[in-house]
Nucleic acid binder design. Structure first.
Length: 489
RNA sequence: GGCGCGUUCGUCUAGCGGCUAGGACGGAGCCCUCUCAAGGCUUAAACACGGGUUCGAUUCCCGUACGCGCUACCA
């Protein structure tokens, strides 16, 4: 079997879309699974839509996701260049070859005439399509008009009748009759090819074995197949991926949420989670595993298991996957990310030792979905509470709490370099001498040291904070909360 | 409008003629418990509709409905 070569061929018109990420991923997965090559090709044949810096951004985002290409811009292989605007003469050559072989023709119709034709057709309720006027131009006439400097395009000839069937790995046989196909423009008047010509020429020249792309291309595939036939080139295998959808089932779009990979990256999603999630939008391994690394995806991926129907982009599941991937990460990796987060936080000025941060990570691991949650869910590890959660105060802070905590301070003060268990034993002693339940001490204590009512076990918190800090916080809570309770309602 | 593609719990999906229609996220409940999580257990929740074919259809065929895509000198 010949080697697998796949490609991701985006237009540099903006940020990488999550749908694009999935397309790139599937292409990458298939290539890597079969020890083939994954190519990145930039389809910038529409100058008007070109966005400055978009290509660089695309490349950088793919790199971030861990999807590395074997050939592409900046990584020239034997089939480059990989930017279509740098291959113009190639397309022109092939377009003219088609004309010479009677498979295409010059068309001098102006945009105005085309518009006029379309308008009339719509008025007559016929399907708007090019009326093929220039298809019957004589060779002499064509030569003359070209010589006169008239602008022209090249259109491919589509048979007047009959139908074309092609095979799609995901959808099976798809049949479309020629009747509804237009004499598609393949070379524009500015000398650039349209997508249809460029994609066929490049996929052939770059020896692409599998064309894996979005479903929006399914309808125009017959045009491409026709071109392959005209050129007498071997057909690649086609696989048209189902679309990604908004919660209301419309095509995934801005305004109903974020669509750029960049958006998710900025929100703190792990690349592992986003890649894993996007891979499962339309594919599954056939068993019940759900958490996959890129390498595991490569190992188990197959186009045969890609579904046919569109998938809604469901953030809740993405969040869960982020949680799962975050908690699988080694402590040291999380430490790095946490330090980075800290550096751009209100706690940036403070210094924390790695050992301290590592113990915070250990305590919070199963309570965070994002790295930023370390700061948001347990700010008390980075700063003494400046106020106390009113609901928790109401529920847990009793009028005798200050007295109880004073007893606790006494017990704690006597400890030397206490471990978690020693704090606990000390609290038990305090509770016993006060003749109250442990919990009557624990809850006010948690409130005093953290300011809130949720988090790791209190004794873990105390140990991480250390004795001095613990005592300081208990004392200031006694002061502040007593003062607050003394205030008239 | 025409053509194409699609349709299993709210969501992602398993299923490839015979199943009490399975799993996951999310929801609900219980257990654990100093809180919050995590974990364990339990639970509600789906084959779009109508015809065929067949001993038997979620599964195959045909319609209908709905959704989406394409219908450009955009990709």
């Amino acid at each position: 079997m010949s080697t697998i070569r796949t490609r991701f061929a985006p237009s540099p018109t903006g940020f990488l879309h999550v749908g694009g990420l999935r397309t790139a991923l599937y292409n990458y997965l298939l290539a890597k699974k079969e020890s083939g090559s994954f190519i990145l090709r930039i389809e910038d044949t529409d100058q008007s839509r070109k966005v400055e810096g978009a290509m660089e951004n695309l490349i950088e985002t793919l790199h971030w996701a861990g999807i590395e290409f074997d050939e592409g811009p900046g990584k020239e292989g034997e089939f480059g260049p990989y930017i279509q605007s740098q291959r113009l003469t190639t397309y022109q050559h092939y377009a003219h070859r088609l004309v010479e072989e009677g498979r295409a023709y010059y068309c001098f119709c102006t945009p105005e005439r085309l518009e006029e034709v379309r308008r009339k057709q719509i008025a007559q309720k016929i399907n708007p399509s090019y009326d093929r006027r220039c298809r019957s131009l004589t060779k002499e006439e064509t030569v003359q008009r070209r010589k006169a400097g008239e602008t022209f395009v090249i259109r491919m000839k589509v048979p007047f009748e009959g139908e074309l069937t092609f095979n799609d790995i995901i959808r099976g046989e798809v049949t479309i009759s020629y009747g509804i196909l237009d004499d598609q423009v393949i070379l524009k008047s500015d000398g650039y090819p349209t997508y249809h010509l460029a994609v066929v020429v490049d996929d052939h020249l770059m020896k692409i074995s599998h064309v894996i792309r979005g479903e929006e291309w399914l309808s125009s595939t017959p045009k491409h197949v026709l071109l392959y036939q005209y050129f007498r080139w071997e057909l690649p295998r086609f696989a048209h991926l189902p679309l990604l959808l908004n919660p209301d089932k419309s095509k995934l779009s801005k305004r109903q949420g974020d669509v750029a990979v960049e958006d998710y990256r900025l929100k703190g999603y792990l690349k592992e989670a986003l890649v894993n999630f996007v891979a499962f939008l339309g594919w599954n391994p056939g068993d019940e595993r759900e958490i996959f690394s890129l390498g595991e995806l490569v190992k188990d991926f197959s186009l045969e298991r890609v579904g046919k129907s569109g998938a809604v982009f469901n953030i809740e599941k993405l969040d869960w996957m982020n949680f799962e991937h975050l908690r699988r990460k080694p402590d040291t990796d999380v430490l790095c990310m946490l330090k980075e987060k800290l550096a751009s936080s209100p706690f940036a000025g403070k210094h924390f030792t790695d050992a301290y941060l590592l113990s915070v990570i250990g305590a919070m691991r199963e309570r965070v979905t994002f790295v930023r949650d370390f700061l948001e869910k347990s700010p008390y590890f980075f700063q003494a509470p400046s106020d106390y959660d009113a609901d928790v105060v109401k529920k847990r802070w009793k009028k005798e709490s200050p007295l109880h905590l004073k007893q606790l301070v006494e017990e704690f003060s006597a400890l030397e370099n206490p471990k978690k268990e020693e704090y606990e034993a000390a609290l038990h002693r305090a509770a016993e001498s006060l003749r109250i339940k442990n919990s009557e001490l624990i809850h006010p204590l948690r409130l005093a040291v953290s300011g809130i009512g949720a988090g790791p076990g209190v004794f873990d918190i105390l140990f991480i904070l250390g004795k001095e800090e613990t005592l300081r916080r208990i004392n200031s809570a006694i002061k502040e909360l007593s003062a607050a309770m003394a205030l008239p309602k």
